[in-house]
């Protein structure tokens, strides 16, 4: 994600400075170049300028990101109810408590279920829609706009609307399904423990499918026409073209999406909080709802921060594993194809 195209920024220093006062602009320019690089090197002034430019951002970042994160780690070693001094040091006991808490383990499992379901459901669905839409059809612009609307709405608004749609008895979803002859679960889609998590996932899919489609469509634009035309001239069917050329070339985009989706699923909070609050019977808790519950309702700040550190560790492990297993392949492939010459 961080590998935003990096262009070499510094002056290439190709102006050798040998040219002495010829009629063209070269000497002046190379002088300016030398001048610029000399100024870059001059310590104090550069340091002050850097401080002037980076200082405000760095201060903000330290106060509101670095400091709180450090405090989270600190809190997690104490039993602390949010008032009085921080003195009841308990070592790793909060972590043990969290990891042995069935509710947290269930919450962690729910996060994992959402990750797996996203890959299994949203990926093929998004890919299929993107492939179908990646052609000249009327109203394509409108379509892209429409598809993206749920993504722009806040999770809260989306959640509140869906909460009403999913009401048992008088909600419209049950009304529609009733017409088709599918009875809703007795406690409602959000009230039945076995179903609630899948219902939440359904709403998440509604909200985030547009992002997947949009990213895949952007990736598809990078597939060169020549390849597709060549394959078509060789008699490949539409289906073969998609399977052998388009989808493989979409690999990096898909992997980036999968990464974003994973990180989002690990932090899942808003939608669950609105739709179910983690219930019924903790059937839809996530790590984030767990830690908010512990922190803001029970004032177990030590437990809550321990859970947040664990959440971070999980996200980090995922990010590193992913970087290691999947994204590295992209880099290796890019290198290989660069060596082979652009294909």
């Amino acid at each position: 994600m961080t590998s935003v195209v990096r262009r070499s920024d510094a002056a290439p220093h190709t102006g050798t400075g040998v040219s002495n006062g010829a009629a063209d602009r070269a000497p002046a320019r190379s002088a300016a170049r030398r001048n610029a690089s000399a100024r870059s090197g001059s310590g104090l002034r550069t340091a002050l300028e850097v401080l002037f430019f980076v200082g405000p951002a760095l201060a903000l970042f330290v106060v509101f990101v670095v400091w709180p994160v450090a405090r989270a780690v600190q809190f997690s070693f104490y039993r602390w109810k949010g008032f009085g001094p921080l003195e009841d040091f308990v070592g790793l006991r909060n972590y043990v408590t969290v990891l042995q808490d069935d509710v947290f383990v269930a919450a962690f499992t729910h996060n994992m279920v959402i990750i797996v379901l996203s890959i299994l459901v949203q990926l093929p669905l998004g890919l299929a829609i993107a492939l179908l839409l990646n052609r000249k059809i009327r109203g394509q612009g409108v379509l892209r706009t429409v598809i993206f609307v749920p993504y722009v709405l806040s999770e809260v608004i989306a959640g509140v609307v869906w909460f009403q749609l999913l009401q048992p008895q008088y909600g419209v979803i049950e009304g529609i399904l009733g017409v088709v002859g599918i009875p809703g679960p007795e406690q409602g889609w959000l009230g039945t423990p076995d179903i609630a998590l899948f219902t939440v996932f359904g709403v998440l899919t509604w909200k985030y499918l547009g992002l997947a489609v949009l990213l895949f469509l952007a990736g598809l634009q990078g597939v060169p026409d020549e390849l597709i035309e060549a394959a078509q001239m060789d008699g490949a069917s539409w289906w073969q073209v998609q399977r052998r050329i388009t989808v493989p070339l979409l690999g990096p985009t898909v992997r980036t999406w999968a990464f974003l989706s994973m990180i989002g699923s690990i932090q899942l909070f808003d939608m669950v909080w609105i739709l179910t609050g983690g219930g019924p019977a903790n059937a839809t808790t996530t790590m984030a709802t767990y830690l908010i519950n512990e922190g803001t309702k029970r004032y177990n700040y030590g437990i809550a921060t321990a859970a947040s550190v664990i959440l971070f560790a999980v996200a980090l492990v995922f990010a590193l594993l992913y970087q290691f297993l999947v994204l590295r392949r992209d880099v290796a492939e890019a290198d290989a194809s660069a060596r082979r010459g652009v294909r």
Binding site: V65, P68, L311
Partner: peptide, 24 residues
Amino acid sequence: PLYTVFVLGLLFPATVAIIPLFVI
């Protein structure tokens, strides 16, 4: 290194720091 400090910020969603943020 300075750039990396900011990039690492991506790894820390507000959720992780939310309790201390509230206190601070």
